[in-house]
């Protein structure tokens, strides 16, 4: 197969970027998308040019490192598939592809297709945990947990933090990510003591980071490699309203 690539090249955070064209004449349909870029990079490098920087690590769709836009879709055309698991058989000979980094104010471009997603970590720092020090845990089977709660919690916890939801959202919103983190913990009995403060603080942090808001387009859900449901966002909204309007002030809340 032959592919024509237009790849966003940008030397650093403050550098001006532009698309550069590459011709890939010998692409095998069995290659993964990243392997095609590996082969291209080997060629670029042997010509003494800087290879295309892109993030990747596990290459089995679980670490969440990889991801960029392929022809306007986060992680490319195949649903529920990270770009590292996407294979070239999803494309046709002669296709022209546009590769762009995730674009959001809260995800500044570091280089080429690599962006800075530490904003996600700060959202988790705001409350994405259950405060339990090592050693203080009760016996694991002391409290039964409804299987459907555990399953739903797992569905949300499957988030790999890749950022495709933000990238695809017309508003560059991190609602799906934040809501998934909240749902994972808020649906479990262990998560109840901190449910309200967590709901408030993580939403506030999401705003502080400069992400947009949710207007229920559901583009995020469509590109999420783990198929995380937008219904988590509704739960987040409700939790935030409960936390800020319908409960008494708490220590550390944004209330006066």
């Amino acid at each position: 197969m032959r592919m024509k690539l237009n790849v966003w090249r940008q030397n650093g955070r403050d550098a001006k970027g532009a698309f550069q064209k590459y011709d890939c004449p010998d692409v095998s349909e069995h290659m993964s998308f990243l392997e095609m870029l590996d082969v291209l990079n080997e060629r670029i490098e042997s010509e003494g040019q800087d290879p295309i920087a892109f993030e990747h690590d596990c290459r089995e769709g679980i670490c969440g490192s990889c991801g960029f836009m392929i022809n306007g879709a986060a992680h490319g055309p195949q649903p529920r598939t990270t770009v590292c698991q996407l294979h070239m058989r999803s494309f046709k000979d002669g296709d022209e592809l546009w590769l762009e980094p995730w674009r959001a104010k809260a995800f500044p471009v570091v280089r080429d297709l690599v962006v800075d997603r530490t904003a996600f970590d700060r959202i988790v720092q705001a409350g994405g945990y259950i405060s339990t020090n090592t050693g203080s845990a009760p016996e694991a089977n002391a409290a039964p947990i409804r299987k459907d709660s555990a399953d739903k919690s797992f569905d949300a916890a499957a988030c790999i933090g890749c950022g495709a939801c933000v990238a695809m959202c017309p508003n560059a919103s991190a609602s799906l990510f934040t809501a998934a983190k909240l749902a994972h913990l808020n649906l479990l009995p262990q998560g109840q003591p901190e449910r309200l403060i967590r709901s408030e603080k993580m939403v506030v942090q999401m705003d502080v980071e400069g992400f947009g808001h949710c207007t229920n387009h559901s583009d995020c859900e469509a590109v999420c490699p783990k198929g995380i449901s937008v219904t988590n966002i509704a739960m987040m909204n409700l939790g935030y309203v409960q936390a800020t309007l319908l409960s008494s002030p708490r220590e550390g809340s944004t209330d006066d």
Binding site: N6, M69, W98, D219, A222
Partner: peptide, 14 residues
């Protein structure tokens, strides 16, 4: 939230 837009953007579900 997105000062620089995409050259290509294709609706997925919206």
């Amino acid at each position: 939230a997105r000062p620089q837009g995409y050259a290509k953007w294709k609706a997925q579900a919206s």
